[in-house]
């Protein structure tokens, strides 16, 4: 840890390259460069659309700001022969203590008491004990006509050896829920602490 003489540590997650990060870099020039690269990668060529898209990305980066969100990303792919999109958002939050058992049950209890989830369960993702919570954030009876429902899967991983939690949330439609649940679990499973 910094300032203790121990080597600095960081969290490592393997994010599939299908996901495009919304540029959240603090430096304006970095954000602009990342935005241009993203627009090019997506193949958006029409100028008005590029401009509106770029301005919205900038607004998102400002809205997300200095909070616990480390990265937010989306994918735009073909899945099973049809278009598919999902968002993957990562945040970190200081926990209490380093006992993974207490942490996962503390997180699970907190999410259960929140009462916003269809299911909350303690599970495993690779070597990590995790809490996996699912909910439907949009759709069902209140859905706008023709608008697809939107589901959310949140995985909370206690970072091994640190009083820190990593939150991973994926949103997608019901049709792709199983696939993206596997994706977010795989990302959670890849979490590791690395020394620089």
């Amino acid at each position: 840890m910094t300032g203790t003489g121990a080597p600095a540590q960081g969290i490592v997650l393997d994010i599939p390259p299908d996901f495009h990060e919304v540029p959240l870099d603090l430096a304006v020039e970095d954000r602009v460069a990342a935005r241009i690269a993203l627009l090019d990668r997506l193949g958006l060529t029409e100028s008005a659309r590029r401009e509106g898209f770029a301005l919205f990305l900038e607004a998102v980066s400002r809205a997300v700001g200095d909070g616990p969100v480390v990265a937010t990303s989306f994918c735009a792919v073909q899945l099973g022969g049809r278009p598919s999109t999902a968002t993957l958002t990562v945040a970190t939050q200081t926990g209490v203590g380093t006992d993974p058992l207490v942490s996962v049950y503390g997180v699970a209890e907190t999410l259960i008491r929140r009462g916003a989830y269809r299911s909350v369960r303690v599970d495993r993702a690779g070597p990590h004990p995790v809490v996996l919570a699912t909910s439907q954030v949009r759709g069902g009876a209140s859905a706008e006509a023709g608008s697809p429902d939107l589901h959310e899967v949140t995985v909370v991983v206690p970072v091994p050896g640190l009083a820190l939690l990593t939150l991973l949330t994926i949103t997608c439609t019901a049709a792709d829920l199983a696939t993206y649940t596997d994706v977010v679990r795989a990302v959670a499973a890849s979490l590791r602490v690395a020394s620089d």
Partner: peptide, 25 residues
């Protein structure tokens, strides 16, 4: 592009590095 969730990207991993530095070890 066709979905390919197999390969890992380290860009986010690199950005996450150092986040834990200020937390309790």
């Amino acid at each position: 592009p066709r979905a390919n969730f197999e390969r890992a990207d380290v860009s986010l991993a690199q950005r996450l590095r150092g986040l834990a530095d200020d937390d309790d070890a």
